[in-house]
Computed example of a mutant assay.
Amino acid sequence: MTALAPTTAADTRHPSAPPRLTRWLLRLHRPALYVWAGLVIVLSAALLWLGGPLTDAAGAAWEQYNACGEAPTCVYDQPSIIRYKDVYSVTTFAVLIAPFLVAAWAGATLTSRELETGTAQLTWTQSVSPVRWLTVRLAAPAALVAAGTGLLVALHHLAWSAGEGRIRTAKSWSDFPTFYAGGIVTVALALLGLVVGVLVGLLWHRSLPALATSVAATAGAFTLVNLALPHLWPSVTRVTTRTQGAPSGGGLTVEQGILTSTGARLPDPYCGGDVFPDCRATYDGLDAVGYYHDYHPLSHYWPLQLTATALTLAIGALLVFAAFRVLRSRTGGAPRRGRTTAV
């Protein structure tokens, strides 16, 4: 009778534990993590400086200027006003480019680089499914992007609020850069840039084309959201007669023009009003009886921010679904087992 050979520990094969993907992801993209952290820290310090000492100095300079009255000569701290304006412009621009920086990085390295070099395919042989691999590459960076961008837009909004009523040259809430740099919609746009980069990387498998495509696609999405923004919440209409002139006032303009006697809306020729005979004849020929102005007042700030954010996140959710569909169509979504080959 043949005796059975004892089973040794060496003969027993145990599948290796799945690697800790989040830790590996952070180590793999450590340079980008350092750059992002440095950018957030430096820009946060600049925004705190803007909303604190710079605003105080510029506000005091405007008080000096206002106290001059009709005096022929006026001594005031003009450099502080100029410094505030310059720092505000630079920090606002820096916050606005955050979604594009995220899109460029995500498109160039987050998925395309690993697919291009074969690192992703090697990971899928280590009991890690492609779906889990992609989930980690979306979730971990999304948390960091949301935290960093959220901090920046909050500090920008506080810095802008600190100068309201104190600085005569301060931007209005409806100013395009101010509205986005200090609003939560920019956080959603940064997350959208991340998703766009991931999806483009899955499609291209090449870093440089994916980088360019991601930035262009994010710019297109930004433009789409901005075009839809004025129509995401019911606007307020102000009507005036021809003798009163065109309506004035601040806010985010949706549409404006002239009204005819039948209530029809026509574009305003902007010829100067009834004080000029030629202009009066032009308005008479158009049967104009007054003006209209559809706009959003300050009270619509948060409704517009929230609806624009919801639209942006909805687009991002669709792109996340598309990214998983693309991955599943190419890999089947299951971990690849078997002998590991060099890539």
Rank of each mutant, 00 (worst) to 15 (best):
L101A: 15
V95I: 09
L33S: 11
I258L: 11
D56G: 05
L266K: 14
G38W: 00
V215P: 12
W49M: 11
G272I: 08
T312P: 07
G249T: 07
V90E: 04
T253Y: 08
V215H: 11
T253V: 13
L96W: 06
I82Q: 09
L4M: 11
L327T: 04
D86G: 02
T341V: 14
T307I: 00
S214C: 09
R23E: 06
L39Q: 12
T7A: 13
R238S: 15
V102S: 03
A314S: 13
C74W: 06
D278Y: 09
R265D: 07
Q64A: 05
I258H: 09
L144V: 14
T237D: 06
L327V: 03
L311Q: 07
P277L: 08
L224Q: 02
L252N: 02
L50M: 07
I184G: 14
F93M: 14
L115Y: 09
F276K: 10
A139Q: 00
G249W: 08
G118T: 01
A10D: 13
L298Y: 15
A17Y: 05
T91N: 06
F324K: 14
L26N: 07
R265P: 05
A103T: 10
V343C: 04
R206S: 15
F93N: 09
A104K: 09
L259D: 07
F100T: 07
D278I: 05
P267E: 13
Q256E: 15
A188D: 02
R265S: 10
D77Y: 06
L96A: 08
D278P: 00
V200C: 12
T237F: 02
A310F: 11
P209R: 10
F324D: 11
T237S: 11
V40P: 01
A159K: 02
A10V: 09
A188H: 03
P267L: 10
R83F: 04
A308I: 04
T178I: 02
A98F: 15
L96D: 07
A17D: 13
P269C: 08
V343N: 08
W160I: 05
L151S: 01
P6E: 08
T213F: 10
P303S: 01
V136T: 12
V40W: 01
T119H: 12
T135E: 03
V87K: 01
I41H: 00
L319D: 14
A221K: 00
T22G: 14
V40C: 08
A143G: 13
A57C: 05
A17S: 14
W233R: 14
G249V: 07
G38E: 02
L286H: 07
T55A: 13
P335M: 00
E114T: 08
W62L: 03
D11K: 08
Q126W: 00
T309Q: 04
Q126T: 10
G333P: 04
A108L: 11
T2D: 10
V153P: 02
F324L: 13
L192F: 03
A46L: 13
A334Y: 00
V128L: 04
G263T: 08
A108H: 13
I258K: 08
T223E: 12
L252W: 15
S112E: 01
